[in-house]
Structure formats: C-alpha cells, structure tokens
Computed example of a mutant assay.
Amino acid sequence: MLVSTAAVAQVPPADEVVGERFDCLSLSEQPPPETARAWLHRSLWANHCYAFKARAVRIGSDGVRSLAISHDVVEGVEREVARFLDGPPVVFERRGRIGRLNWAEGESPVPASPEGIAEHLEGLYRLQLSGEERLANRNTVRLDIEPLDGLRYGHRFWLDKLTGLPLKQILLDEQGRVVETFQITQLHQPRLHRGAIDLDRRRPPPDYLWHPTWLPEGFISKPVEIRSPRHDDDIGHRVYSDGLATISVFVEPMAGTDQLIPGLHRLGVSHAAVRHRELGGQTRQVVAMGELPPRVLIRVADSVEWQAPVAGTSP
C-alpha cells in the first residue's frame, strides 16, 4: 500500500486498469516483487483476481473457529463466501466489484482501491519484509506493517510467493499484543481469473447533515453502499478508512427499547463506542466501531457534529 515508482514497475501500474475494468491476466506478466511495498501491492490485486477454495482457522477473543472459504469471479463480479464449521452456523457472503478510493468529484479520476490505497498509506505505516516461512505446504514471505502513531493497530501478513494471496494474518494492538490470528491451513488450487473484473461505479458524494470533526490522520470517507434492509432512513451510516483500518459511524434518533448502553462495548476483535448526544434538535445515539484502540473510537463518537455540508466540499 506504500508504493514507490520502482515498486509499481513490478506490479500492475495504474494505466493497466483500462476503462472501468482490470485485466487479471496482467498479474501473470509481472516479475516477482522485490520490495515490501511491491509485495503488498501484488497481494491487494491477488485478493481480487484469484479463484480458490480454502480451509482456515481464526483465533480471537471468542476462541478458535474453523472456516471454509471460497472466492471466484463470475462475469466480472467477485463472490466470496466464508462459512464457520464449528459453533453457531454462521455464513458471510460478499459480492461486488473492485472498490474506488474516493467519491466522484466532477470529471476527476477515481482510482481503483488497490492503486489508491498503495499511495494513500505512505506516512501512516512502515512496511518491511521479515524473512520467509512455509505455511499450508506453500512458501511465503512475511510482511510487517507497523503504524507510525498509536492511533491504529499493526499487521503481519504471510504472503504466498506464487500468488501473493495472504495465507496468515495477525492483528496487533498498540502495545504489540496479538488481537486476532487468521490462518489458511489448506489452499486448494488457486487459479488466476482469465478475464477482467469490473470496477465499482463512480458514486457522487452524498449530502450529510452530520460528520465527525476528528478522525486519525489518513482516515477518509469511503464511497461504499451503506443502505441495508435492516436500516431505515432515520439511521445514518458513514464509513472511513486509512486503507487498512476501518471506522463505521452510525447516528440514529433515540426511540424504543433497542438502544445501546452508553460506553464501550467489545464485539469480537472490534470495539464500539456508544454515546447519546443532542444533535439536530433531538437526542440521538452515536456509535463508532472498528478494529482500533478504544480511545480512538470514543474520541470519534464524541466529535460528531450536526450541520449541513459546506457547498463545494467533500463529505
């Protein structure tokens, strides 16, 4: 995600994202990465472009759970399914296109996330390669990603040398303690998609009546679809990211008995800071959640203000 001119030469440069699609076969034409930045960049594209099935384990605050994972591309659209094999029968499914980094502003370009993320992370994290290991019967390189401040978590990735797919990931809190470990134990015949993946449509910036007045450096508003059948029009939802970490902020009127108790709540490896605030002439519930230090989420929730956006500015 931190990328230099030399690193880009070894992985798909921006001009290989032709029009509104990315040709996955271009990955096979690139030489092996040589730097930490180039390895991370290759991994971002590999996550989109390889079809595979895998078995994995996740170790977190709720114990150890095993999963079956599949990822494929059908008619330019990605589909990923994760199914827990023990405990409650939970299935997560994601279907979509390669995301954009920014909201569309007039005719200005809106890069695909792997390209934009690679440049955006510079100055936020330090990347370095830390040797090679064998995992899931495959050779990997270890990539360490250290935050340059105490406002976000660190990451360790073990990337498959052949494909760039992450075979193991570790999340570290601000004290360097392991928060979560995710590891693929079996990777079945990963296959590079022989075709293109569509980029997400360009999304114009919406009009919001509220926004957080403080975010850690590098967190920007994400152009993602945030409407859900579970959320009515009274529930506002915004997503911010620095390229690795994500903060979701919800604002809704206080009504009924479904409100959360103000304070800090733990949700697996994530935390949620809950506040009841006077905003827009009524009491509203503000929730800031993500895999970040709790004090960061509390400060974000406390900073939310209610006001119409200034004309000509981004949300």
Rank of each mutant, 00 (worst) to 15 (best):
M1F: 09
L2H: 05
V3T: 12
S4F: 00
T5D: 15
A6H: 04
V11W: 04
A14C: 04
V18E: 14
G19M: 06
R21P: 00
D23Q: 04
P32M: 09
A36W: 00
R37S: 12
A38Q: 12
R42K: 08
A46K: 02
A46P: 10
C49G: 11
Y50D: 09
A54Q: 01
R55Y: 07
R55N: 10
A56N: 12
V57K: 15
D62P: 00
G63H: 04
V64W: 03
S66L: 03
A68W: 11
A68N: 12
I69M: 15
V73T: 15
V77P: 08
R79Q: 11
R79F: 02
F84S: 08
P88Q: 03
V91Q: 09
G96P: 06
L101V: 07
W103N: 11
E115G: 00
G116Y: 01
A118K: 01
Y125S: 07
L129Y: 03
S130H: 09
S130E: 14
G131N: 08
E133F: 00
T140E: 07
R142E: 14
I145V: 15
P147I: 13
G154I: 03
H155C: 01
H155Q: 07
E174M: 03
Q175C: 02
R177G: 04
R177P: 00
V178Y: 07
T181G: 00
L187D: 00
Q189R: 14
A196V: 06
D198I: 05
D198R: 14
R202F: 01
P212I: 05
W214S: 09
G218D: 13
G218L: 14
D232S: 07
D234N: 06
H237L: 15
S241E: 14
G243H: 08
L244N: 05
L244V: 06
T246A: 09
V249P: 07
V251G: 05
A255D: 14
T257E: 11
T257C: 00
Q259I: 03
G263R: 01
G263H: 05
H265A: 05
G268W: 02
E278A: 01
L279Q: 04
L279C: 04
G281A: 03
T283G: 04
E291I: 02
E291Y: 10
P293T: 07
V300D: 03
T313Y: 11
